[in-house]
């Protein structure tokens, strides 16, 4: 993904298993080099059932190639209406091998990439997002006006926040905030985190590189994601907000909207029990 800017839009409708009705998604993705960088090392994949963003690291073309390799492997291994966690894990392992070869061919100290994304899966007959993450790109969900960060960064500052030595606010300006503690590449087996989140009708999911989250705070992300008329509008508004805030890094936004899910997850509040 070396072009300065690129975008994708799409939609799909799949049948849920055992007569569970239909699941309809629409999505949009945009990427931009930003205002300061000379090349775009972000790559994305936006094609049901998998949506992912990868932010490459490494000199010369190695970062581009690393992020492109991981989305290419995800696209290769995941097909059909629904993904499996085995497919995701296999794709990431192969991508890691690919990146090892890229690093070798460039004679660099190493190259690697973050990767985060969501893949449509079936768990216990119901549709679930398998949310996976390595690094500091992020997945958010917006449901009933509430924005939730689904992934946890693999970063030095996140580790310090977890340990209680700094606050989340302090993390935003900490000198070490650009240090990540896991990546795909560097000759190691990738160690991704995984979560399963029920697919909820009306929800919007945002997958983005740190070029967005280091420029735009969560309040503005929530506002733009909820005010946008559709996924395409949301992806564009968020990307423009990152550029307006300085656009110091490559920015990639992928927005997926669950237009319809007949097996709707029951997200309402639990009621007290009287018996």
């Amino acid at each position: 993904m070396v072009s300065a800017a690129a975008s994708t839009v799409g939609a799909s409708t799949v049948a849920l298993p055992d007569g569970g009705g239909q699941l309809a998604l629409s999505w949009a993705a945009q990427t931009n080099t930003g205002l300061k960088r000379s090349g775009n090392q972000d790559s994305y994949l936006a094609a049901a059932p998998v949506f992912a963003v990868a932010d490459g690291m490494g000199g010369h073309a190695a970062g581009d190639e690393a992020s492109a390799a991981v989305v290419a492997r995800l696209a290769e291994y995941i097909s059909g209406d629904f993904a499996s966690t085995d497919e995701i894990a296999q794709a990431l392992r192969h991508a890691s091998d690919d990146i090892g070869e890229i690093a070798g061919s460039h004679d660099r100290a190493g190259s690697g990439t973050t990767v985060t994304g969501i893949a449509l899966t079936i768990q216990g007959q119901r549709p679930y997002w398998a949310v996976f993450n390595i690094g500091d790109s992020r997945v958010y969900s917006l449901l009933d006006g509430v924005l939730t960060q689904l992934t946890v960064d693999h970063s030095a500052v996140q580790a310090m926040v977890d340990a209680g030595s700094i606050t989340a606010v302090e993390a935003e300006s900490h000198p070490n905030r650009n240090i990540i503690t896991r990546a795909v590449g560097f000759g190691k087996n990738p160690v991704p985190d995984l979560w399963f989140i029920p697919v909820a009708e009306g929800s919007r999911l945002l997958i983005c590189s740190d070029g967005l989250t280091k420029e735009v705070d969560a309040d503005l992300i929530r506002l733009l994601l909820s005010e946008a008329i559709d996924a395409d509008d949301a992806a564009g508004l968020l990307l423009e907000a990152a550029l307006a805030a300085g656009g110091r890094d490559n920015v990639t936004t992928v927005v997926v909207e669950v237009v319809r899910s007949d097996e709707a997850a029951d997200a309402d509040a639990t009621l007290p029990r009287f018996d």
Binding site: M57, G112, H154, N178, I179, I180, T181, V191, G246, D249
Partner: peptide, 25 residues
């Protein structure tokens, strides 16, 4: 450290080694 456009790097600061949630840490 002031600019957000600093390069993202992979690393494990020594004092953090035991809090980083990385099986390979």
């Amino acid at each position: 450290h002031a600019d957000v456009d600093e390069q993202t790097i992979l690393g494990q600061p020594a004092p953090l080694a035991d809090v980083i949630d990385d099986p390979d840490a």
